[in-house]
């Protein structure tokens, strides 16, 4: 029996993933309706449960892909992986109005710059208060506060130690997870209910998975606007952090 299940998991991963995710979302909607009396949206609960399961999966397997490291659920890693995720994100652009986009553009650009530079500053400041003094480590940890991709890209470019690079990834991951969880919670208070705010939001937060997940749980119609700016953030961060921002940091320290 065990061998048969292993073989099915190996050859039909996506089939199992769809069953699992479908069931998880069903459970989340029931919790939302019966448990929170529709106050917390089912999608927010589903994403939260996904993160909890990812943590448990990581504990159990010691791997880096959360629940997807569990052999039976490897398909979840495919379903939630970069390729399918990016197809789905681009598809949401179908609901974007070109005029709305043009009007929201300037705010998005400002948000991107503030987001990248601001994240770098906060990350480096926290690293500094933790005792790091060398510009390479400070810059890498600052970059990690931008996104969990910018961190290691910057660290590798500047020659940081593996421990610092790992810490920068952890920082980026914390950021992404917090955004995913708390966006629906704070959305109304920060006026996150229209395309323009969504573009600013995406540009400021930057973490594509965080923004995509957070907006999905808030208002799916906002996803394309937020995702559009967020996907430029990583590229901008990879550009600025190892170069200009590092140079400025080195001059300051």
């Amino acid at each position: 029996m065990r061998a048969i299940l292993d073989e099915l998991a190996d050859k039909y991963p996506l089939v199992i993933a769809f069953i699992f995710i479908g069931a998880l979302m069903g459970v989340s909607w029931v919790i939302s309706a019966k448990g929170t009396r529709n106050r917390i949206h089912g999608s927010a609960i589903a994403i939260f449960l996904g993160l909890v399961l990812a943590y448990l999966g990581g504990l159990w397997t010691g791997g880096t892909k959360g629940l997807a490291d569990v052999p039976l659920l490897a398909g979840v890693g495919l379903l939630g992986g970069a390729m399918i995720r990016d197809i789905a994100i681009v598809a949401t652009a179908m609901g974007v109005g070109l005029d709305e986009l043009r009007r929201s553009g300037p705010g998005g650009v400002v948000a991107l710059l503030v987001g990248v530079v601001g994240s770098f500053a906060v990350g480096a400041a926290v690293a500094f208060s933790a005792g790091y003094r060398d510009p390479v480590s400070l810059a890498t940890l600052g970059a990690g506060a931008a996104t969990y991709i910018v961190g290691p890209v910057t660290g590798t470019a500047l020659g940081a130690t593996p421990e610092v690079i790992a810490l920068s990834i952890a920082t980026g991951l914390v950021k992404s997870i917090l955004v995913m969880i708390f966006t629906p919670v704070v959305a109304r208070r920060i006026g996150l209910d229209n395309p323009r705010s969504a573009m600013v939001f995406g540009g400021l937060m930057g973490t594509t998975s965080g923004v995509a997940g957070g907006l999905a749980a808030t208002d799916p119609k906002l996803v394309p606007y937020g995702a559009m700016t967020a996907t430029f953030f990583t590229g901008l961060g990879c550009l600025l952090c190892p170069s200009i921002l590092f140079i400025v940091l080195r001059w300051m320290v």
Binding site: A17, I21, L24, M25, S43, A46, I47, F48, G50, L51, V52, L53, A54, Y55, G57, G58, L59, G62, T64, K65, G66, L67, A68, L73, V76, G77, L79, G80, G81, R85, A88, A166, I169, A170, L173, S176, I177, M180, S209, A212, G213, A216
Partner: peptide, 12 residues
């Protein structure tokens, strides 16, 4: 998106 959340390296 839910599958993506479940594949994150939360442990790290």
């Amino acid at each position: 998106t839910v599958a993506m959340a479940a594949s994150q390296n939360v442990r790290a």
